[in-house]
Design a protein around this nucleic acid. Structure first.
Lengths: 96, 96
DNA sequence: TAAATAGTTCAAAAATATTTGAACTATTTT
DNA sequence: AAAATAGTTCAAATATTTTTGAACTATTTA
């Protein structure tokens, strides 16, 4: 059974834009290492940004589909979404 | 024999920045379809940009290593560099 | 040799992206 | 109930990216 290969061009740009920034790359790197849900606060502390800046960057990553988020009481847990990486990054060149 | 996996983080950002733009994505798409050297003028005409804009976008793509360029008399021939795509895009997630 | 063609350079203008701090909501702790 | 904590919202300030046009170099064509 083959995988789905239809790409959304607006999403494609959002994905590359989201990854084209050192802070967001640091966030993604940390989330990959953890390989499980972590709070925005934890990630923000690790990469050294303010809460406000965190809100901004997590929003872009989520809009690109690169992370999923789950709000639990006052905390927000985030995690990478590997399927988006696969579809829009890993498979980018072959689907071009 | 394994492939080299050491990534340059400045290049990584340049690559994603270069791909995070609709015009440059159109350029890359056209170059992939052609699969051989074409002039900047031809590409520029296809994607509908001015010469000046072309110079700007080809410069970014080249600085990211996504295209190679060869000047022949007054024309500049460009072509994708698949190894950069492989190293910095296709293998990005696995090397994270 | 004059005119046309392919592309570059430069700086100013315009458009986008990012940072910042104050004020806010909602939840948890003391 | 007050204080602390986690995160959001908003608008202004700042920074970065992209576009534009005029002037330029080098090459080719008429």
């Amino acid at each position: 059974m083959e995988k789905e290969t239809k790409q959304n061009s607006a999403t494609q740009i959002k994905v590359f834009k989201a990854l084209a920034d050192p802070i967001r790359l640091a966030i993604v790197t940390y989330l990959k290492q953890q390989d499980h849900e972590v709070t925005c606060g934890e990630v923000g502390a690790v990469v050294g940004i303010s809460k406000t800046s965190g809100t901004y960057h997590f929003k872009l990553l989520q809009a690109a589909g690169l992370i999923t988020a789950r709000k639990v009481a006052r905390e927000k847990y985030v995690q990478l979404d590997p399927t988006t990486f696969e579809q829009y990054v890993t498979d980018f060149y072959k689907n071009l």
